[in-house]
């Protein structure tokens, strides 16, 4: 599956109510490392049908960024049953991301 772009409006349905774990990619268009990490996030979304992968633009969705207390990007947050289960900041290898799931 492709990465789903989530907004404040769709967050509840796509993330909180998801029945499968959700990997959230918090990013910004001006952030180089975010763009690099996105290649890896895309690959994970393609390979793993058992999870949902979404992205949140911290500039457009500042309320969500604030709610998650995002102060460094790229930041990946893993949600399970609507709650944060894990997070990681900065560039990561695919394996280290998968190990968080």
């Amino acid at each position: 599956m492709a990465v789903i772009k989530v907004t404040g409006e769709t967050f509840e349905n796509e993330v909180v109510k998801s029945t499968v774990p959700v990997l959230i990619d918090f990013y910004a268009d001006w952030c180089g490392p975010c763009k690099m990490l996105r290649h890896t996030v895309d690959a994970i979304a393609e390979e793993r049908s058992d999870i949902k992968v979404v992205s949140i633009n911290v500039d457009d969705e500042s309320d969500l960024a604030e709610q998650f207390e995002i102060f460094s990007i790229p930041c990946l947050v893993i949600m399970k049953d609507g709650k944060e289960a894990n997070r990681t900041v900065g560039l990561q290898s695919k394996d280290s991301i998968l190990s968080l799931l």
Binding site: S72, R87, G90
Partner: peptide, 17 residues
């Protein structure tokens, strides 16, 4: 505290401050 106040990249994270 990385990502919770500590950063190694001002151009990445400055906007949050």
């Amino acid at each position: 505290l990385v990502g919770r106040g500590i950063s190694y990249c001002a151009t990445c994270d400055g906007a949050f401050y």
